[in-house]
Simulated assay, not measured.
Amino acid sequence: MTAMTTIGEPAELKKYTGPQRAAALLLVLGKTHGAPIWESLAVEEVKELSSAMAQLGRLPAPVVEHLLVMFSSEIAGMASLHGSFETTERLLGNMLSDDKVKEIMDDIRGPSGRTMWDKLSNVSEGVLAAYLKNEYPQTVALILGKLKPDHAARVLSELPREMGVEVIGRMLRMDTVQKGVITEVEQTLKIEFMTNLARTQRRDPHESMAELFNAMDRSTEEAMLLALEEKSPDSAERIRALMFTFEDLTGLLPAAIATIVKQADKKVLTLALKAADEAARKIFFGGMTERAASLLREDISNTGPVRARDCEEAQSQLVLLAKTLADKGEIMLVDPKSDDAVIL
């Protein structure tokens, strides 16, 4: 057991790469102790470690002992674990090459998804269209053909009209695409688009703050915005412009209103409309059947005195529901501050 306490690194260990060391450790841990680690790995990582394991050959005892000592000492010395991009990058750096670590970290920092096409489906149509405007129509047709129809349609609507028509024509005439071509397009997207997106995509803090203000009750919201206007009028104006309120819902298309009404909790809808004016109520009633609208009118009339705060909270819940539906692509939220912009 004296070898287990040896601090120095055995000379034999130097000839093993990072992936080989990781593979050796997993080989020693076996099925029982190594299964949780294998299950947490991506398919590509499993393949890489499996390949390294298959080429290990006979492992010298000092190498095995040293790997176990390093593993157990690092785990024992941890009071707690903290997972983050930084800790993950440091850990991978001990096992993989710098290029591989960079590739993995750029990948996980980008939009989520197991395949490139899953990831593209999580990129907003405006951002994706801005990139595709500079590509050949044939390439754009191939990419859109791999996306979900609803997402591809939204991207098409963001492209210049002439280019969009050209892309549609190419999609109609497109034959079976060779696997090598698809692989090349995927690699180009990964290098030129996803990596840059992961590095440059930063959310405007005003957007997060607008969501926070949307969740406040009206009196607190207004008091905070007025106070902010005194110190930073530009920020306050930006936040107000980004906020989406209950009143803004009345500007939605009838189909969107109908979807919201269908998904909303009836008690929430009753409270929200009790504080609304008649014009707003008519818009929501228009998204229901006559019978459903009549019943809702009765519920509103039969509801006794209600605190204004409860009604405002119900209206906020409808706004959050609308945003959730928009994120899922089920409705579009028309921004009343722009004639043709949409909030997705």
Rank of each mutant, 00 (worst) to 15 (best):
T6R: 15
E9I: 05
P10F: 01
A11C: 08
L13M: 15
Y16T: 03
A22Q: 05
K31Y: 09
V43Y: 13
L49C: 01
M53W: 04
V63T: 09
L67N: 01
T87N: 14
I104Y: 14
M105R: 04
D106W: 09
D106G: 10
D107R: 13
W117E: 09
E125C: 11
A129T: 10
A130M: 12
K133S: 04
P137N: 09
P137T: 01
Q138A: 07
I143H: 02
I143K: 03
I143Q: 00
K146L: 01
L147V: 02
V155N: 07
L156A: 10
E158W: 05
V167I: 06
I168G: 10
M171I: 02
K179Q: 12
E184A: 15
V185W: 06
F193L: 07
Q201V: 13
D204S: 14
H206Q: 10
A210K: 03
F213C: 04
L226H: 09
E229R: 03
S235N: 07
A241W: 00
M243A: 05
F244N: 02
F246W: 04
E247F: 04
D248M: 08
G251A: 11
G251S: 12
L253E: 15
A258K: 14
T270G: 06
A275K: 09
K282D: 13
K282C: 00
T289Q: 12
A293K: 01
L295N: 14
L296P: 00
S301L: 15
D310G: 05
D310L: 10
Q317R: 12
L318A: 01
A322G: 08
L325T: 01
D335Q: 04
D339S: 14
